[in-house]
Design a protein around this nucleic acid. Structure first.
Lengths: 173, 173
DNA sequence: GTCGGTGCAAAACGTTTGCACCTCG
DNA sequence: CGAGGTGCAAACGTTTTGCACCGAC
């Protein structure tokens, strides 16, 4: 078992994209919804990416591949993927949403650097336990959760420098 | 347009509006920023409220008190309060932001009912410990966090009914 | 008196929608 | 062939901004 709460700049895509695409195809067939070129291209971009993509990022990635989809279609398709459980939507307080492949039912949470914008993920088993306990204690049926820790990362020299500054002055930005 | 009718907070009404106002006055004086009527009125509305207010809610509350502030001023003042550490901004995925008085440095987290919109708060000491541990392990300096659990509450009969349904079918919305 | 705040309207922003046309199945 | 998807532009709702005027200190 690997140490899951270390910085993994993202999930390994490995052969995942192909598998996810098969899942998508199946979900669409099951619902008798068409598997269009645009849906394939947009899903491909998301499934192959190791980052959290905005709708704009997806459109740009398509352009770079020589493909194209109107932004309405990008939004509609991303919403569809979320609805099918193949993607998750995140709001990192940037004024827009980001999307990420959702592999299986596994939840993971985010450390967001307010300096450089890097987002890293972690997964701590105790967190699941604690939140389940809180929900139970409040008669609450949890469906999904969002755990975001904002702060300063130690990935770049600039961020480490900032950490040193904050620590010595005891201040926070 | 924001629909404020559904959001209820379980945070106990504190008689600390006056105290918070004093803190605000002090912070402004320290920064040599003027303590205007609008700032006072907007802060008063927020400090006296036990709910999570949208900018629109604040404007409406002002109107009800016979006061007035342009929406630009409302937004600017709420941003100021956040910057001064006297308020926090929340995004409950409604398409707009909500604001809440921030008392001291205490963090608290939210259970959000996706059915009725009720927002309740919780504070679990273990959560602090777990998140601090995760941050430390990742060389991350945490400044603030957001923990949101979305699901179904048991406050109303309708929500309880829904819980029963989901439990028996094993499905999630 | 001076610097910043305020109000209004207009702009900006990400996102959604209406509608004619196209495509998958 | 028909249900549904797509593209474009226009609409949307929230938030921000430009600018002339006003008010706190």
């Amino acid at each position: 078992m690997s140490d899951s709460s270390t910085i993994v700049s993202t999930r390994p895509p490995l052969g995942c994209a192909a598998v996810m695409m098969q899942v998508l195809r199946g979900e669409l067939r099951e619902r008798e919804l068409p598997f269009t070129h645009q849906r394939e291209a947009i899903a491909q971009v998301l499934f192959e990416s190791t980052r959290h993509l905005s709708a704009d990022d997806v459109a740009a990635a398509l352009r770079q591949r020589g493909e194209h989809a109107g932004k309405a279609t990008v939004y509609r398709t991303l919403a569809l993927l979320v609805e099918l459980g193949l993607a998750t939507e995140h709001d990192f307080d940037e004024g827009f949403k980001r999307y990420e492949t959702q592999i299986g039912a596994a939840q993971h949470d985010h450390l967001i650097c307010t300096e450089c914008g890097r987002v890293s993920t972690f997964d701590h088993p105790e967190l699941d336990r604690v939140l389940a306990e809180v929900a139970a204690r409040n008669g609450f049926d949890a469906i999904t959760r969002q755990v975001k820790v904002f702060g300063t990362c130690s990935e770049s020299a600039a961020c480490r420098e900032l950490q040193r500054t904050y620590r010595s002055t005891g201040s926070t930005p």
